[in-house]
Simulated scan of single mutants.
Amino acid sequence: MDPYADAVTETAHGVTIALDVTAGAKKQSFPAGYNEWRKSIRCQVTAPAVGGKANRAIIDLVAETFGVPRTDVSIIAGHTSSSKTVAIAGIPRSRILKILSASNP
Rank of each mutant, 00 (worst) to 15 (best):
M1D: 14
Y4G: 03
Y4C: 06
V8A: 05
V8F: 08
V8N: 05
T11K: 10
T11Y: 09
G14P: 01
G14C: 04
I17M: 10
A18Y: 09
A23H: 14
A23C: 14
G24D: 08
A25R: 06
K26E: 15
K26M: 12
K26I: 11
Q28R: 10
P31Y: 00
P31N: 04
A32H: 08
N35D: 15
W37R: 12
R38W: 12
S40M: 05
Q44C: 07
V45M: 07
T46L: 06
A49N: 15
G51T: 02
G52K: 03
G52N: 05
A54G: 07
A57Y: 00
A57I: 02
I58L: 04
I59L: 06
D60N: 07
D60S: 06
L61V: 05
V62Q: 00
A63Y: 01
E64C: 08
P69E: 09
T71F: 10
D72G: 10
V73M: 01
S74K: 11
I76F: 02
I76M: 03
A77M: 10
G78A: 09
G78W: 04
T80S: 12
S81N: 12
S82I: 11
S82G: 11
S83Q: 13
S83Y: 12
K84F: 08
T85D: 00
T85L: 03
A87D: 09
P92Y: 08
P92W: 06
P92A: 14
R95P: 01
I96A: 08
I99R: 06
I99G: 03
L100T: 01
L100V: 05
S101I: 01
S101C: 05
S101F: 05
A102S: 13
N104A: 15
P105I: 09
P105D: 08
P105S: 09
